[in-house]
């Protein structure tokens, strides 16, 4: 009895889903599989800088000089619009700055404070314990200042997008005029006033104006590579990977120790198991 009911229920579900299949297939056959869109055809996969990043691969690690250059790019370019709210100035000690340098770097920033005498909101120089301040009072101010597009917080940007650091690098270096082929294939596609064409952005039209516009926009200290647009983009992408995953180094080091130990313990366990079973596992004799 139960099996008859089961067969009926099974056929019921199968029938309904096959009905859906048939109608779907009919639509696909008569109307095609949906139209190609410019977002589909002209969207490009993120590519990292030539030679990749120092932290690529399972054992890669930070290049402190690059992270410090990236910090400089963030401070002088990105910070005008983008916050970094989960990172504190004290964290900069992790990318090779001394305690004194961290204090000095923090003091270059202006953070919100409270006047100790009147209790009014005011500003003061940053302390190492402060977090990076937001350039805007709140989201409404951010939207109002940016043509209604709120600049996202960058703390986790390289973990919050497919492609991570490569995506950030591609986006920063990927601005270009609307390609002629696209204009031909999709005459309706347009980049509205105030947006900017970028094939690495999901819908190809990005609210952010190209932030890195000229080689030498940021002046690097002696002994660093030339601040070309590509170099600056790579440096700030690396810096933003550090802000998103500050424990990378500790994680990989601990992981390596743990992996070696696990391999050793597992091999021991294998021999121990073999040893224990040897008494009851005579050769099969047939």
């Amino acid at each position: 009895m139960i099996r008859i009911i089961a067969i009926l229920v099974g056929l019921g579900f199968t029938g309904v889903v096959m009905l859906a299949f048939v109608t779907g297939a009919w639509t696909a056959a008569t109307e095609g599989m949906g139209e190609e869109t410019a977002e589909h055809v002209f969207h490009e996969e993120a590519k990292g800088p030539e030679g990749g990043f120092s932290f690529d691969g399972p054992l890669g690690n930070w290049d402190y000089a690059q992270l410090q250059r990236g910090y400089q790019v963030y401070r002088e370019v990105c910070a005008a619009c983008h916050s970094l709210k989960y990172v504190a100035f004290r964290d900069l000690a992790q990318i090779g700055y001394t305690e004194g340098q961290v204090k000095a770097l923090a003091a270059e920033w202006v953070v919100p404070g409270i006047d100790p005498d009147t209790g009014e909101t005011t500003t003061r120089p940053g302390l190492p314990t402060d977090y990076f301040p937001s350039p805007y009072e709140n989201n409404i101010a951010a939207a109002a200042a940016n043509n209604n597009a709120i600049p996202p917080d960058l703390s986790l940007m390289t973990k919050a997008r497919h492609g991570g650091t490569d995506y950030v690098y591609s986006l920063l270096t990927g601005y270009e005029p609307l390609p002629a082929e696209l204009r031909e294939e999709f005459p309706e596609f347009e980049t509205p006033e105030g947006l900017h064409f970028n094939p690495y952005f999901a819908n190809l039209n990005l609210a952010m104006a190209p932030p890195l516009t000229a080689d030498g926009q940021v002046t690097y200290a002696e002994g660093n590579p030339d601040p070309t647009i590509r170099q600056m983009a790579a440096d700030v992408s690396a810096f933003l990977y550090w802000t998103a995953e500050p424990k990378l180094e500790q994680r990989r080091q601990t992981g390596l120790w743990f992996l070696v130990f696990m391999l050793f313990a597992t091999i021991l366990a294998w021999f121990s198991k073999k040893q224990i079973w040897s008494a009851v596992k005579p050769k099969r004799e047939d």
Binding site: F258, F261, A265, L268, A269, S272, Q275
Partner: peptide, 20 residues
């Protein structure tokens, strides 16, 4: 000896891992 050693080593490794 070999068999005792193996099992003791395997159990100790588990212990060390646990403590770590």
């Amino acid at each position: 000896r070999r068999r005792d050693f193996l099992n003791i080593a395997a159990v100790s490794a588990t212990g060390i891992g646990g403590v770590a």
